[in-house]
Write a protein that binds this DNA or RNA. Sequence first.
RNA 1: CGGGGUGUAGCAUAAUGGUAGUGUACGCGGUUUGGGACCGUGUGGCCCGGGUUCGAUUCCCGGCUCCCCGACCA
Length: 420
Amino acid sequence: MRQTKLFTKTRKEAPADEVAKNAQLLSRAGYIYKNMAGAYSFLPLGLKVIDKINTIVREEMDGIGGQEVHMPSLQESTLWQQSDRWDDEKVDVWFKTKLKAGGEVGLAWTHEEVITDIMRQYVSSYKDLPFFIYQIQTKFRNEMRAKSGIMRTREFWMKDLYSFCATEEQHAEFYEACASAYQRIFDRIGIGEKTYRTFASGGAFTKFSHEFQTLADAGEDIVYVSEQKGVAVNEEVLAEADLSELGVDKEDLVQKKSIEVGNIFSLGTKFSEAIGLYYKDSDGEQRPVIMGSYGIGPARAMGTVVDLLSDEKGIVWPESVAPFTVHLVGLNLDDAEVRDHSEGVYNALHDRGIEVLFDDRVEARPGEKFADSDLIGIPYRVVVSKKTKEEGKFEVVTRKSGEVRYLTEDELYADFGTQS
RNA sequence: CGGGGUGUAGCAUAAUGGUAGUGUACGCGGUUUGGGACCGUGUGGCCCGGGUUCGAUUCCCGGCUCCCCGACCA
């Protein structure tokens, strides 16, 4: 991608109405645009990052047997009345509107009812189970207050997976598999070290549910962490009885701010009974399906990466989610020979399948290009200039560490060739 | 939803009861060229509605907007 053709450019100052670090940096670097409180556009750079995150999420969900679907946002009322979640008194985050043809619809804020209804048609025997169905889809929640940039919005992507099992054993096995997959996802996007599987209250069917909380000063949540035990609990689970069950002493726990990046929850038979999803076991007995739900917000994950890994110069993307691998910064491009040379390097990198953003601006000065490059945060910056052309070596700077290397053209291609 | 703020050019900001200045960005000309250079020049602006007033961007009322604190938050 040529930077002169890239839609959006950087700006020196953040919009006055953005306070959150993630939104300031992502706005300045041209990844996102705020359309209203709690609703952001994802511009080409931003969408690339989301796609990278989603690819990782899909790989891990597919890896534990998940199958992807896509369900509608529009919801009619009767299904939700069966689970008693249509009434605004019961659920205060609904966006509702009228159908021209008559009747009221809501915009889905979650999909338990919907997927459970679908499953009724395809599950009738224990032989049909288990199933693990997920989607990455837009959710709407009429939050009282949107805040923290892209971390808490009224319209947002969510990866929501729903598990359907015949037995508690089956369910427990998948629940753990999904917890592991979640940890792998957070590892792969670069926030694993600071992300704790956190015990939260479990509702009617299990003692605990689990949140994945990433320790961050920008967090809205508070968790209590025992670093030596690698365990965290949220406020609901601070009672002595719960703590002793988990084998932690209250004195060991340190209060930390955190961001909830994922959530897994055992639903028991609440929705299967409400919606009427039953199967016949091997004795011919009719039983309700045991369910679980598992959520991750890709945009919130993106914001968490920015909050956690950026520095004073700008964003620092891990390679796994970076919009490009290499930022090829061309200097002295008014010189025809340097221009041809850098075009050749760009094409060579591109032809080798390396994702490269080429700063081909002729008029921009070096300082501006470097500042932009730091702000955008692509993992490797390769400088091509009159100097590097004459010396026959390219300057390669690692964004994260600042490490500078000088590589020949062959070394350069070999270096990135092995990583792609 | 309770409380507190906010709204001026694409962006960031200043002043003002007599129609607005600066930086940046953008256009043009020129000097520059490895960390957001400089000179000259130009384009471009007071959230919406009502009230007070000879006159309102400014004061008052209402609305909307966005931000913050709290509450809420599978």
